[in-house]
Computed example of a mutant assay.
Amino acid sequence: MAKERRRGAGSCAIEISLRGSANAPRFPTSPCQGRERSLTKARRFGGRGNGETRPTAKAEPATDGGNTVRERRAPSQTSAPNLRRSGTRLTLISASSTYSRQSPNVLASLASEIWEDALITSQDTGNPSILILTPVKDAASHIETYLKGLERLSYARELLSLGMLESDSTDGTFAHLRSLQARLEKRFNRVTLCKRDFGFKMPATVARWADAYQLQRRAVLARSRNHLLMRALDDESWVLWLDVDVIDYPADLVETLLSAERDVVHAHCVQQYGGPTFDLNAWRDKGKLHMSDLRGANAPVRLDTVGGTVLLVRADRHRDGLIFPPFPYGVHNLRIRDSHPVWGRGEIETEGFGIMASDMGIQCWGLPDYEVLHHE
């Protein structure tokens, strides 16, 4: 659907929304969709497709009622200045207001060209945009290690964005993040830093996993994740949830998670490589099996719930309504545990996310043989 949007005197913009139309062409939403691909055992959990030759098109005039609008030509990289693309929204910017005076048929013609350019561009690159999201609290001591890990990532800068939400810190975490914004903007296409306090503080002498505070703590963490998601997500294709105290992972983390080709995929978080699972929120069979119990598959394995330490989610699943419940969720779902020792039936936060995903018909997956290291 095309619509005209004014951009001040003497110029206009035509915006094409790729959502909401049943007949609209769809961008590939995974690195391999819409192209031939060869899988080799040399790549973990799958590979990306071979390159394809860009199709060519004969030049032909676009007309409206006998009036030539402009020559249509095969899409090319040289036309990029006229086409601004961000995920699933395209904007064609004109140097003058000429198009604003043309009939709807002219706009439709231009829209058709943009569809064609965008689809070919997406198939050529095969690399989707990623939004990394990290909620933080009292994390000043982890920020430097966290940033060094992000700066080691091999994924292209122009395809990576970052969102961070700080809440209820007493160690100056937010001020520290603001002081590093220029550094962050050198590494990422877009940076969102926001603050939202929930008024939740635990006694300094109490461990964060203490039963007395577990339900309230995880409810606040779920709310923090949801607030961050709503404020930071733009048109990215994928969301990578990454905890600030995950201290080591391969530079090709993003590529490896994408190569699993699953809508929800969780890396195996440990405190020692080859050691027991740290993120026990990822499980199946009513909590009887965790990631360390599933090693040796060398492929994605089915999970009933996930953790949030390193979690890749197709962004459209979030847009469809998949969030982190800040309350015990899924009491009628057969996958939940019989009873939690603190809050009884239902699952909360990332575990609630997994149960909600199953209610939406979305399978969660884990990579038990792909390990990332968490701070001890």
Rank of each mutant, 00 (worst) to 15 (best):
V136Q: 04
K137H: 11
D138E: 10
A139E: 02
A140W: 00
I143L: 14
E144D: 15
E144Y: 08
T145H: 07
L147V: 09
K148N: 12
K148I: 11
G149C: 09
L150Q: 03
R152H: 15
A156L: 14
R157L: 06
E158A: 13
L159H: 05
L160P: 00
L162V: 12
G163L: 09
G163I: 10
M164W: 04
L165Y: 08
L165R: 00
E166T: 08
S167C: 08
D168A: 06
T170H: 04
T170L: 02
T173P: 02
T173H: 01
F174V: 06
L177H: 01
R178W: 05
Q181I: 11
Q181R: 14
Q181V: 14
R183K: 13
R187K: 14
F188Q: 03
T192R: 01
C194Q: 04
C194W: 00
C194S: 07
K195G: 04
K195F: 03
D197K: 07
D197M: 03
F198L: 07
F198W: 07
G199N: 03
G199H: 01
G199S: 01
K201H: 12
K201L: 12
K201R: 11
M202H: 06
P203Q: 06
A204C: 03
T205P: 01
T205R: 06
R208T: 15
A210I: 14
A210M: 04
Y213F: 15
Q214N: 11
R217D: 10
R218I: 06
A219C: 08
A219G: 08
V220Y: 02
A222K: 03
R223G: 01
R223S: 13
R223V: 04
S224D: 04
N226H: 09
L229S: 05
M230T: 10
R231D: 11
E236D: 09
S237D: 15
W238I: 06
V239K: 02
V239N: 06
L240Q: 04
D243H: 09
Y249F: 15
V254E: 02
E255P: 09
E255Q: 14
T256N: 11
A260G: 15
A260I: 12
V265K: 01
A267N: 11
H268P: 11
Q271L: 13
